[in-house]
Each structure stands twice: as structure tokens, then as C-alpha cells.
């Protein structure tokens, strides 16, 4: 095991950790977004889906057990992702102690330049979001097990809906760069493959963002409601 820690000292390995944990987190947000769309099928479907998540892993595992394993895994992925992001950011700041009087970016995109800030917005959002719709203690009228009710009462407030929309849009930018960048970091590159990498990043950043945004938007506009 020692070799893994030695390998992690290398910034290239840190970036690979960031990419691999990024893939895990991407897998999570994609399935989370797809699950959320059940709200369009009405209260029974989304509530049954949320309950069904707790039965994942049956009959080998008991009620809620696999869900907890997944949660611990996700937490570890977020932790490692942030740790390597923070360590590399520190290194990179030190590498350019004196900045240019004039600098004209040539290729960097808005998304690539805001990865760190986008990441921090996502972090704050995750904390708020868990307290809001999982634990429920910052929710005005939280009913355990009634996901549909919790969503509708929350997103009828334009401020809350707006904040969710803002947060998942910054996730979209983060994914636009990240889903392309991870191929570079892991060395998955080739003349035929490279055009696909950009298309993949655009498509999935858009799918995740539009999918997430659709729920607060539908409730805010009254398309979904009691």
C-alpha cells in the first residue's frame, strides 16, 4: 500500500485521483438527475422511487444498507476530489509568484478558469441541499417520505428555486470542462477518439444541467403542483 501514497505525491497522480473521483461523482449526478425526473410522473412514482432506493441491494443486503455504502463512497470521493483540488491549487499558485502586467488568454475557456470557484459553489450547495431535502431541518414544511410534497413546497419559493438553478448551472460549467479534462488527465487520448471527448463533455454537461433545472423550473412555473 505504501506505493500508493508515494505515487500520490506526484501532481500527475493527484490529477488522476481528481479525474477518477470526478467520474464517480459524475455517475452519481447523472443517475440522481434521471431519478429526479420521476417527479413528472406524479407523487406516487417519485415517492416509490425514493423508497425503492432504500431497498437497493436486496436480498443480499438489508433495508437501506446499500444506500449507506453508496453514501460513504460518495463522501470519500468528494473528500479526495477536494483534497487533490486544494493541494494542486496551492502548488499552482506558488508556480507563478509574480503575475503579468498584461496577460491575454489564448485558449482557456470560462469553464476551465472557474473550476475552483464552481467547485466551491457546488460544495456549499451540497451541504445546503442535504440539510434541505434529505435531513429536512432547513425546510419550512418537511414530511419524511413525501418527496413530492417536499419538492413542491420548496420550489414554489422563487428564491430557493433560483438558488438551485444557479448551483446546477455552475455544476454544468464544471462538467463541461471536467468531462473533457479527465480524458487528458488519465491519458485517454487518440486521433480518432479526441473529437468524441469534446462532444461527450458538451452532451453530458447539457443533459445533467437541463435535467436538474427542469424540476425547480416546472414547479416554479406551476406545471407541477398540488
Amino acid at each position: 500500500m505504501k506505493w500508493i501514497f508515494e505515487l500520490y505525491r506526484s501532481p500527475i497522480a493527484k490529477k488522476a485521483v481528481m479525474a477518477l473521483t470526478g467520474v464517480i461523482l459524475f455517475g452519481f449526478v447523472l443517475s440522481h438527475m434521471a431519478g429526479n425526473l420521476k417527479v413528472f410522473q406524479g407523487p406516487e412514482k417519485i415517492n416509490a422511487y425514493a423508497e425503492g432506493l432504500r431497498e437497493l441491494g436486496k436480498p443480499i443486503l438489508g433495508h437501506g444498507e446499500l444506500l449507506w455504502i453508496l453514501r460513504v463512497g460518495l463522501l470519500a470521493a468528494v473528500g479526495l476530489h477536494m483534497l487533490s483540488a486544494w493541494q494542486l491549487t496551492k502548488l499552482n499558485r506558488k508556480a507563478r509568484p509574480i503575475s503579468y502586467a498584461k496577460r491575454t488568454p489564448q485558449a482557456a475557456t470560462y469553464a476551465s478558469r472557474t473550476m475552483r470557484y464552481g467547485g466551491v459553489i457546488i460544495l456549499f450547495f451540497i451541504v445546503y441541499h442535504l440539510l434541505h431535502l434529505t435531513v429536512g431541518n432547513v425546510h419550512v414544511d418537511f414530511k419524511h417520505g413525501d418527496v413530492y410534497h417536499n419538492l413542491v413546497t420548496a420550489f414554489q419559493n422563487p428564491l430557493i428555486a433560483g438558488f438551485y438553478i444557479l448551483a446546477v448551472t455552475s455544476l454544468g460549467f464544471h462538467l463541461y470542462h471536467g468531462l473533457w479534462s479527465l480524458f487528458q488527465s488519465l491519458g485517454w487520448s487518440g486521433p480518432r477518439f479526441n473529437a468524441f471527448r469534446r462532444q461527450f463533455a458538451i452532451a453530458f454537461a447539457a443533459i445533467v444541467t437541463v435535467g436538474f433545472v427542469s424540476v425547480p423550473l416546472a414547479i416554479l412555473s406551476g406545471f407541477i403542483g398540488h
Binding site: 499552482n92 488568454p105 485558449a107 482557456a108 476551465s112 479534462s181 487528458q184
Partner: peptide
């Protein structure tokens, strides 16, 4: 520093 794939 270390690469963040800006392509600059």
C-alpha cells in the same frame, strides 16, 4: 505548477 488542461 501542474496542468489543468486550459490548452494555453
Amino acid at each position: 505548477g501542474s496542468c489543468t488542461n486550459h490548452r494555453e
